[in-house]
């Protein structure tokens, strides 16, 4: 590669795009058409005036944003969504880390089989998987029937935050496991042995050596799970019923039930900005602790 470039480069006319850069074009095109363009459209709609007769009036206004920002209800839903995101992320992290460690340190053959098991939640469609949880969790579901048969008190597991937390953690845990396992695999097991022979017990060797070196995977996994959680719609609406309200649910209701396209768009954009800000703060903090350990 480098030899070919060294001999070819001088002959190439300056300013021409090299063939290699063309390789990103298909992906770029898909992103622009299906992601960037709709978002710009959303941004545009969010500054239009709502109308009862049309989707919106072509009159520019910042009123949609002003109303959202002034409404304490908006902030309570934002906070609840963030809380759900953080809780799911924390629960996934606690459950995923030992699993990822085991996976990364398994022999090559066993690792493949374990990997399939880990990603199994993603192999089932979201609706089927969620209905599966409903069968287990509802008041007349399997778990509560069992509790009742044992003469115990039933526990409300669905149509509340707990049910949503369970459903979200289940489906997003593979992302956490895979990011963390990837970095742990890159940590030489001999480092832990070196720490042991220098006098660290197994637990201390882990915390002082393996864990800090796996932080990039932890950061990637937490960001991934958080972003997926705060933007999820199906699981919170099915397992949460009418009691759990998150921003994606509120956006959809504003648009489909109130027919307020500009209002829903403004909420979506506002939340996008808040999420981005929260991630920025998180990455700054994570980067700082990553440097000092």
């Amino acid at each position: 590669m480098s030899v070919a470039e060294a001999t070819v480069a001088p002959a190439r006319p300056a300013g021409r795009v090299s063939g290699r850069h063309l390789l990103i074009l298909p992906a770029l095109a898909v992103l622009v058409v299906f992601f960037v363009a709709p978002y710009l459209n959303l941004l545009l709609i969010s500054v239009m005036t709502p109308s009862p007769r049309a989707a919106y009036l072509r009159v520019l206004t910042l009123d949609n944003y002003a109303r959202l920002v002034r409404d304490p209800f908006t902030w309570s839903v934002v906070w609840h969504t963030m809380w759900l995101g953080m809780a799911t992320t924390a629960l996934s992290l606690v459950l995923a880390y030992p699993l990822a460690y085991h996976l990364a340190r398994s022999p090559r053959g066993a690792r493949g089989a374990l990997m399939v098991l880990v990603i199994s939640p993603l192999l089932v469609g979201v609706l089927i998987r969620t209905y599966g949880w409903m069968i287990l969790l509802q008041d007349t579901g399997l778990i509560n029937q069992l509790l009742r048969a044992l003469g115990l008190r039933t526990v409300p597991l669905m149509y509340n935050n707990l049910g949503v937390l369970i459903g979200l953690t289940h489906v997003f845990i593979p992302f956490m496991v895979l990011s963390i396992a990837g970095t742990i695999q890159g940590v030489d097991p001999e480092l832990e042995l070196a720490a042991r022979s220098l006098g660290a017990g197994a637990w201390r060797a882990f915390w002082r050596v393996t864990f800090p070196l796996s932080l990039p995977g932890v950061i990637a996994g937490t960001v991934l799970v958080f972003v997926l959680t705060v933007s999820s719609y199906v699981i919170p609406s099915l397992l949460g019923g009418f009691t759990v309200l998150t921003i994606p649910i509120l956006v959809v209701r504003t648009i489909t039930e109130l027919f307020n396209w500009p209002g829903g768009s403004a909420l979506a954009i506002l939340f996008f900005a808040i999420t981005l800000g929260a991630l920025w703060v998180y990455l700054r903090l994570a980067g700082r602790t990553g440097r000092t350990t």
Binding site: D188, E190, L191, A194, R196, S197, G199, G201, A202
Partner: peptide, 20 residues
């Protein structure tokens, strides 16, 4: 005895220095 109680100074082939 576990490694941490043996008082052996070990130098590994690939050194195993802590990269962080």
């Amino acid at each position: 005895d576990p490694p941490e109680r043996r008082d052996c100074g070990m130098v590994f082939q690939h050194y195993a220095l802590f990269p962080h």
